[in-house]
């Protein structure tokens, strides 16, 4: 999504400091100035009418940058692939760099990474899986956490990846800065979820044997004729996990990006009212902070934790 507008308007934001006034008066003046600017902007620019050209969803559209097709398989390099590679590089790079320089007395970065490692190991993996399963599947679960976390976080960095809009700098057309997240594309959470799904089913079958594992899906004490419909429900609930786990992550990140997009100027462009951009900007900033500060980490945590819980259920053998 385009942030050019948002960054343009930012310096105007924030009322001037006034000494010797009560907090209430300051807030009232700030609000007054804020509304006044909105009215002035509306008076100057007015309304251009609805903008039919601007398609907000195109911000998430993936146009192939490098065409790459193997048979019917489209492996074209695009924006999402770039974000995946950045996430991969950042996750692996950070962890390798930190792990290479593990100090007996940690500095701040190391402390943070150690805290995250501890969170994934003790809280996410050990807290939800039996000891031996936790030891075996911890790297997988932790990698999920870190990979999704980095994917989410780079989604809030404005990067020059907008292939619809360009900025002309000294005669060269550069792509405009935009926010994009790989996890805001369903394919990516979905394939991670499918990997989780198949791996934990395989692990359950490997541990308990096919029959015993599927018997384990039945709640304790259910037998006889009642077992059949309940088993069907359990099977459905297993497959619903694929949707719930992937869509939760995808929808959260997409919604956050859409909100930031609309509030950070998208709505103003869509409706052709420039003053609206000024009004919605603080909301965009608030959502941005909310997304970066909470949602990005929370969703990574939830994804990894649910993965652990599924593995825990499969390995412990029953509900």
């Amino acid at each position: 999504m385009t942030t050019a507008r948002a960054t343009e308007e930012r310096p105007e934001q924030g009322p001037a400091e006034r000494g010797g006034l009560s907090l209430k008066a300051k807030l009232a003046i700030a609000l007054g100035v804020y509304l006044l600017v909105a009215i002035v902007l509306y008076a100057i620019f007015g309304s251009d009418g609805r903008n039919e050209e601007f398609q907000p969803q195109d911000e998430f559209k993936l146009d192939p940058w490098i065409e790459l097709k193997i048979g019917s398989l489209d492996l074209s390099f695009n924006k999402a692939v770039l974000y995946l590679l950045i996430a991969c590089a950042l996750t692996a790079g950070t962890m390798l760099l930190i792990s290479k320089r593990m100090q007996q007395r940690p500095n701040r970065t190391q402390t943070i990474i150690e805290g995250a490692y501890d969170l994934t190991y003790n809280n996410i993996a050990k807290g939800n899986m039996p000891e031996d399963a936790a030891a075996k599947w911890f790297p997988f679960v932790a990698t999920l956490f870190f990979f999704i976390w980095f994917s989410n976080m780079i989604g809030y960095l404005p990067l020059p990846v907008n292939d619809h809009e360009t900025v002309d700098i000294v005669g060269i057309e550069f792509p405009a800065f935009a926010l994009y997240a790989a996890t805001a594309n369903l394919s990516i959470p979905l394939v991670l979820t499918l990997t989780v799904f198949f791996l934990y089913q395989a692990e359950g079958i490997r541990r308990h044997g096919l029959v015993k594992y599927f018997k384990g899906w039945l709640p304790a004490g259910v037998s006889g004729a009642a077992a059949v419909p309940i088993f069907v429900i359990e099977v459905i609930s297993q497959f619903v996990r694929i949707i719930s786990l992937s869509v939760r992550l995808f929808a959260n990140i997409l919604a956050g990006h859409l909100l930031i997009l609309f509030m950070g100027g998208g709505l103003a462009v869509l409706l052709g009212i420039a003053a609206l951009g000024w009004i919605t900007l603080p909301v965009a900033i608030a959502f941005f902070i909310f997304e970066v500060g909470l949602i990005a980490t929370l969703q990574a945590f939830i994804f990894a934790t649910l993965t652990s819980i599924y593995f825990g259920e499969a390995t412990a053998g029953g509900h």
Partner: peptide, 30 residues
Amino acid sequence: NFLVSPNVGLMIWTLLAFGVTLYLLNKLAF
């Protein structure tokens, strides 16, 4: 529609990126 329709190529890229990350973290970092 493209927001919710799965893109197989992207999935393979995802598996690649995730797989490489998993390998590096599992073998070296963790």
